[in-house]
């Protein structure tokens, strides 16, 4: 018994090493996934970000057909990379609404003039309050919302051209 106990600290240390090795080997996932996927969109109402588009409210997302809600900002660099992909989705007839985070109207207008404009509605969220209500933690993020206003998918980060199929599939599934 005594002999066995002498080995106990070493065993504990080995166990500790194993936990550390496991933690080091597993790639970190810094993305924070919203727990609202599968749940209804929280109620919100946002003022228009630019004069050319109406604002966005949660009621606009219950139109019977699935829509994309794109959380973006004019100061966000990956949003520029994402713009052509959103234009392609628009070309395929997908309705896309935008939520501009911490942005000024003139900056959003300049961003849309430079990178083209895929949006139907654009609401302005100057203090990220709707972003927080959505469980979103950065820009860009895209939510697939079905015709009843239920969130079906959250895509974190810019949609790459090779991820276009996933978004289309999620939209089809939400029909």
């Amino acid at each position: 018994m005594k002999r066995l106990i002498l080995w106990a600290p070493l065993a504990v240390f080995a166990g500790f090493l194993m936990v550390v090795a496991f933690g080091l080997k597993r790639p970190p996932d810094p993305a924070i996934h919203s727990k609202l996927v599968g749940k209804p969109m929280p109620a919100f109402e946002l003022k228009p970000a630019v004069a050319e588009h109406p604002g966005l409210s949660s009621e606009d997302l219950k139109q019977g057909a699935p829509r994309l809600v794109n959380v973006f900002a004019s100061w966000c660099v990956p949003c520029i990379a994402e713009a052509p992909v959103l234009m392609e989705l628009k070309r395929r007839g997908v309705p896309i609404d935008g939520i501009a985070i911490r942005d000024r109207g003139e900056d959003v207008a300049a961003f849309l003039a430079r990178n083209r404009d895929p949006y139907a509605h654009i609401g302005t969220d100057p203090n990220s309050q709707v972003q927080l209500a959505l469980g979103s933690s950065g820009v860009p993020e895209t939510f697939v919302v079905d015709g009843k206003g239920v969130i079906r998918l959250q895509h974190i980060g810019a949609i790459n051209p090779n991820e276009l199929g996933d978004i289309i599939a999620a939209l089809e599934a939400a029909k």
């Binding site: 900002a73 100061w75 990956p78 985070i101 942005d103």
Partner: peptide, 17 residues
């Protein structure tokens, strides 16, 4: 590098109330 520029990006709006 791409990711770090994204996280460093800050808006020009003043802080919330």
């Amino acid at each position: 590098l791409l990711v770090s520029t994204a996280t460093l990006a800050q808006s020009s709006l003043p802080p919330a109330r």
